[in-house]
Design a binder for these strands. Structure first.
Lengths: 328, 328
DNA sequence: TTGAAAGCGCTAACAG
DNA sequence: CTGTTAGCGCTTTCAA
């Protein structure tokens, strides 16, 4: 197209100075209504879009926030991100997405890029601390970073231990007494917390749960694990899984072995993912309030950006039991 | 923290001019190895991160691309986005994510924001054309924009019609002769193309398929639809669904009515989503090569940004049948 | 209520 | 091989 159209063009065509145009765009300073109308008309006619990169440079803040996330393909994360993005956009912020694929090196590269772009803040869902952030506000979300301290870090998470308790209670209430817990080992701390919460609650009822682990979050692995378990202990009547995908894998294994759910064994999952609602029977699961988590995190970050001092640096949100067919 | 650290600081501390520092950062121009080493050392020590917003302003291109997407929570989209983001990051581009929630007004706002940020290019997955883009390169992906023309628009899509054919063939090969197709109406064109392809192929075998529609992509709606269908036509022995979630809903309905899959009825889905692989029987589905789609689109966009003239503005990628238990 | 002008951090002529 | 310097488009004092 022909020529650059910028604030100077607008100013010239409206017969005012660039300062006035700037004031009108940002609605600060004073200007007469008629001036404003004239300038707006010109902007409209030329389809003018103020250059935010110049603005960012001048003001030294970019109205962009970066999100570091292991894998956007995971429903739990994408729910969080959807809500964050929606929430921030209302305040004029845009969202830069960075998939780290659980790879620290890649994560470092992304972090460097975010710093170079002078993002206003960073939301980190990876569970890895990245020192380099300098003075950019960081809120950790969903996963506790390594070396976390209450005093230094800003963290929003859901109460995984309590979620585990809920699973235990659900199984107990359904009359189970011979209970196993299937969890993913070495993936992220959240699974361990769920396991812990569940086992603790069971212990309080005098039940010594069998802990059963898989190395990755994978349905086939869960199926295999459950096969083995059933072979060596056929009296299991309750199974808590630290994740819906594991629950699904377990469910298929049980089906295959003729162990009927919920008649012979009660089953619970975790995450309340779409998966849980799509079986017959549907799977009782723990719902994390992704919306509340995302909003709290976005809100906290925004306040940090505004330079407020944050009193509650650590927010831990309760989970909810969604009772479905698998524990009826 | 104390003072701003910028290219001038680095220059001063290394005893060279800003121009030299700039040259070293961008690896153009010439400079001696020892100068480079000295400057790099200083940058390292100060943990310097070049300010890309200044660079963008100066060079008038931002190394950021924007993605407009209806809903990142949808697996099909998040797969696409993961791949796009990964691919673009290798070329130094960052990815701005914009969820439009199928809302044209919101989409317009996002588009305006993207223009203001002077993104280098836009990837649009919403199926809506947004005129305002000005001279920013746009590639449409996955959904054909309204008013699409081969001559003007850049589009990467998968061959939905061919995918529909594949579904039909799978059912025919499995010996079905009384076939219905369940599709979502008024959602996006892709569902209609799948329906069309499927029906055409069936027609060529002399089979007049029953088309069955739901108003939204929803498992419960699919369940309800299938109940009705089975009531009025109990001889159906094959069912193609234009989406895995619909297939899942249908499956549950069939189960409930005692219609066994695949013994009494063969079932196919579309998308090869995680859902398809998690039932017993697992569900035969159509796989769209999200990776290839994303790469083609990213590549095309990059070439447009580089000012190349694109010969193949329209890429249509074939789909693949994934045969599973539901058609055995 | 408005304008003039400095400067945000960087790149890219141009000059040496 | 290196330095000087004019802007990129905008905001924001300071003056009028």
């Amino acid at each position: 197209m022909p020529q650059k159209i910028n604030i100077k063009t607008i100013a010239a065509l409206s017969g005012v100075s660039v300062a006035t145009v700037s004031r009108i765009i940002n609605q600060n300073g004073r200007f007469s209504a008629e001036t404003e109308a004239r300038v707006r008309k010109v902007m409209e006619d030329l389809n003018y879009h103020p250059n935010t990169v110049a603005k960012s440079l001048r003001q030294d803040h970019s109205m962009v926030i970066g999100i570091l996330v292991p894998d956007i393909t995971n429903t739990h994360f994408s729910r969080l991100i959807l809500e964050i993005e929606t929430c921030l956009f209302r305040f004029g912020y845009s969202t830069l997405i960075c998939n780290t694929n659980e790879d620290r090196e890649l994560e470092k590269q992304h972090m460097d890029a975010l710093i170079s772009q002078r993002v206003s803040g960073i939301l980190c869902l990876t569970g890895n601390r990245q020192t380099a952030a300098g003075s950019i506000p960081v809120v950790y979300l969903d996963r506790r970073p390594d070396g976390y301290t209450e005093a230094e870090d800003h963290l929003v998470e859901s109460d995984n231990r309590q979620g585990g308790c809920l699973q235990a209670s659900a199984l107990l209430d359904a009359g189970c007494s011979n209970i196993a817990v299937l969890y993913a080992k070495g993936v992220d701390l959240n699974h361990m917390m769920r396991l812990e919460g569940c086992c603790q609650t069971l212990a309080m009822s005098g039940i010594n749960a069998k802990a059963l682990s898989v190395d990755r979050v994978s349905a086939p692995l869960a199926t295999a694990a459950i096969r083995e378990l059933a072979a060596q202990d056929p009296h299991i009547d309750g199974l808590a899984c630290t994740n819906d995908l594991l629950a699904v894998g377990a469910f298929l294994g049980l089906l295959e072995m003729g162990i009927r759910v919920p008649e012979m064994l009660k089953l619970t999952g975790y995450d309340d993912s779409p998966l849980a609602n799509v079986y017959n029977p549907s799977i009782t699961s723990i719902h994390q309030d992704a919306q509340a988590m995302a909003r709290s995190a976005a809100d906290m970050l925004l306040r940090m950006i505004d330079g407020e001092s944050i009193s509650g640096k650590h927010i831990m949100l309760p989970t909810r039991l969604i009772t479905r067919g698998s524990t009826k």
